[in-house]
Write a protein that binds this DNA or RNA. Structure first.
Length: 463
DNA sequence: ACAGTGTTGGA
DNA sequence: CCAACACTG
């Protein structure tokens, strides 16, 4: 009888194309375990929306495992200690885990290796990205900082490895370790149940991810044109499924690779962007916490300490009360559904940083708390891109014009859906309603021209 | 073999 | 502005 194999699950909550699970199932009886470790990530412990997703995704995976007469063991605490103890308890020969590149997980993997005795080893696998971070480097051997040459290099060495099948059989151990009920973790909100919008908007888990991908295979051709139109929302909405590892990017790649449309080529670049962000945080672990460029940030932000005190302007933005309908529609969509259309994310983020001159980290934290697809790499890289504080091009200060963008991308229906006060306004005035048509809806916090000039001046002064 | 310089272009 | 690469000597 072969010895027990532990599968340490993190954001890889799937059975198919899950290299760690695959290897464990071939090696012996499997004990899948999820460790809720809230301290390790510090300021990036899972936010409210992420916890809702995590609950449903774990629940879904437990059901799938149930069909194999297997289950998930739940544990709470410092992951390396908890896992080392569990390995002792079940007499495991190996802990199999997908490699993760958040700095706290890299640290935990090292600590776990040290904590394990001679009888149990740690086996790490890649597979949550198209290629393992660090796979492509510049001609001189250093990691890429700029997206476009990175993506060209990626395309040169693609495609990704072939996806693995789901394990045929998953053998159970002779006896199961104790585990609390998932309900006991209270990942779902208690009294005011604000998660209704999230559960209405999403289906969770591996099967739902593949259903979504099947749907997307018929839509992706229109992505090139449609991805910028919030009202039509021609986007995959795969981001949370990918973040939680309910589906792998290799599975997405192989499902869509024969589509040969412009839409597919553009979508492929977005998948590569996800790998790019992971490469950036692998290279600069604090990237989502620190500006990469050394601006004099005391001259840049209007409220250098707003990270610690709740700024009134920050609150207007968070609640979708800026007076700019496209920004407010986006912020309200985020609050209701745990997600925001990508085009609108750019507009809303740019508004916080450029129009309000509020430190991008305040926005990063809010998104971290509200997004079901909150991802350390993507969130940090995208916020620094919008702020112009990041590794990428910095040749001019990019200030998006929210009203122009709103009209250009036909967002009238999107605004009507999320800013109910403006529900009766016509297409021609909904993007920037005159005061007498605003009713309960607030007037603009600051005019675009004035904000633009103020931002240009602040960025010049802080250079 | 590779440091210095020029050219190109950036979600 | 500056990363990345091609070209140079």
């Amino acid at each position: 009888m072969s010895s027990v194999q532990i599968v340490w699950l993190r954001r890889d909550l799937r059975l198919a194309d899950q290299p760690a699970f695959h290897a464990a199932a071939q090696a012996g009886p499997v004990v899948p375990v999820y460790v809720l470790d809230d301290d390790r990530a510090g300021d990036h412990a899972y936010g409210g929306a992420s916890r809702v997703w995590l609950h449903h995704s774990l629940d879904s995976l437990a059901r799938s495992l149930g069909a194999h007469r297997s289950r998930i063991v739940l544990r709470r605490g410092d992951a390396p200690q908890v896992l080392a103890a569990l390995a002792d308890e079940v007499g495991a020969a190996c802990i199999h885990a997908m490699r993760h590149y958040e700095p706290w997980w890299k640290e935990a993997e090292d600590e776990l290796r040290d904590a394990l005795g001679d009888d149990c080893k740690l086996c790490l696998y890649d597979g949550n990205y198209l290629l393992p971070p660090g796979s492509v480097t510049t001609g001189s051997g250093s990691p890429y900082k700029i997206y476009t040459p990175f993506s060209k290099a990626m395309l040169d060495v693609m495609p990704p490895r072939d996806p693995l099948p789901e394990p045929d059989t998953i053998h159970s151990p002779d006896s199961w370790p104790d585990s609390p009920d998932l309900q006991d973790w209270q990942l779902l909100p208690a009294k005011p149940d604000w998660a209704g919008g999230i559960t209405d908007f999403w289906d969770f888990g591996e099967t739902a991810a593949h259903d979504r991908l099947d749907w997307w295979a018929n839509e992706v051709a229109d992505y090139d044109e449609g991805r910028n139109l919030p009202s039509q929302d021609i986007t995959s909405r795969l981001s949370p499924h990918l973040h939680w590892g309910e589906i792998s990017p290799a599975q997405v790649w192989y499902k869509l690779k024969d589509k040969r449309s412009d839409g597919w080529r553009t979508f492929a670049k977005e998948l590569i962007w996800r790998d790019y962000a992971q490469n950036v945080i692998d290279q600069f672990p604090d990237y989502p916490r620190e500006s990469y460029r050394d601006y004099d940030e005391r001259k840049l932000w209007r409220n250098p300490d707003a990270g610690h005190l709740i700024d009134e302007d920050l609150e207007c933005w968070q609640k979708g009360m800026t007076g700019y309908p496209i920004v407010d529609a986006g912020m309200r969509q985020l609050w209701q559904t745990g997600w925001m259309h990508n085009r609108v994310r750019m507009i809303a983020a740019s508004f916080l940083v450029k129009h309000l001159l509020i430190d991008w980290r305040c926005g990063e934290q809010w998104f971290w708390d509200c997004l079901v697809d909150a991802d350390y790499g993507n969130n940090g890289v995208n916020w620094q891109w919008i702020s112009g504080t990041g590794v990428d091009s910095n040749m001019f200060v990019r200030i998006m014009a929210p009203l122009t963008q709103s009209e250009k991308f036909n967002s009238a229906d999107y605004i009507r859906e999320y800013v109910l006060e403006l529900g009766d306004l016509s297409d021609d005035c909904i993007h920037d309603p005159p005061d007498e048509k605003r009713g309960d809806y607030p007037s603009k916090m600051i005019g675009h021209k004035e904000a633009r000039e103020r931002a240009l001046e602040a960025y010049r002064a802080a250079k």
